[in-house]
Nucleic acid binder design. Structure first.
Lengths: 139, 139
DNA sequence: CGGCATCCGACACGATACTG
DNA sequence: CAGTATCGTGTCGGATGCCG
């Protein structure tokens, strides 16, 4: 495993400290960051955003096919939430039958960039994690 | 919002295509990546890892206090899973009463780096998201 | 102190059926 | 085609209590 320098640790600690003013609401108050994070890091949301990053536009049923295993209900819920939060756009063409196209907004795309770094890391190391998991279970 | 160049889009598409071989398991087979991602991007896991990134070691009850709102049950579940997956280490000192210390492994720390990029983005733009959300609800 | 066991409620999710 | 409505269920998570 990559060794971590003390320098890195200090940098990281600084970054975290800066964030904690926001994410560490100790009183009973409502914490918006957690909400935003919850949707953005939801497993279905991630897959939806990734697919919309790959295909410029997708229609409902296509998306449902690609995001394998998602139910229609959950997909429509997530799409509505992601649209409300500004990540994706929804365009409806009043043809018969109707055509609805989903795509990433500029905002959504800028998020996708960050998301990709994370998912790439996870993809690269998932084998390691699976191995760790098995090693942990056995002995 | 930052405009997205065509060049960027192509790059992104390539990255995603590379990943999709793994995350897009269309058949009924078990998909490990989603599992790994599910734990790693869980809202509690994220907070736990962030706090362990800030404090080198933390004991159970301290952690419970910092990760505001988590129940003892869920915290111990997550800790065990995160330990099994190799992100955190658990050291028990057989004193009376026992002392147990949690910390990040090198692997966990390297994940923290990626995670930080994401949470920083979210922290920076959460206000935007909240505004979007309100704008969407109203009219 | 650090947890695990148990119980129980909420709600997130899936399946199905139906509509514009 | 793109959803919504309804219903049933199962899992997650919180509270409590006990033990090493």
């Amino acid at each position: 495993m990559e060794t971590v320098t003390e320098n890195q640790k200090v940098k990281v600690a600084k970054k975290i400290k800066k964030m904690f003013g926001h994410i560490d609401v100790r009183n009973a108050e409502y914490c918006p960051i957690r909400d935003v994070m919850a949707l953005a890091s939801d497993k279905w949301s991630i897959l939806i955003i990734l697919y919309l990053g790959y295909y410029p536009v997708l229609r409902f049923n296509k998306l449902k096919k690609y995001v394998y295993g998602i139910s229609g209900k959950v997909l429509s819920e997530r799409l509505k939430m992601l649209e409300a939060d500004g990540y994706i756009s929804r365009t409806m063409y009043p043809e018969v039958p109707v055509r609805v196209e989903y795509g990433l907004t500029g905002f959504g795309h800028s998020y996708l960039l960050k998301l990709l770094d994370l998912t790439e890391w996870i993809t690269a190391y998932s084998d390691t994690v699976i191995k760790n998991r098995k090693k942990f279970k056995k002995p």
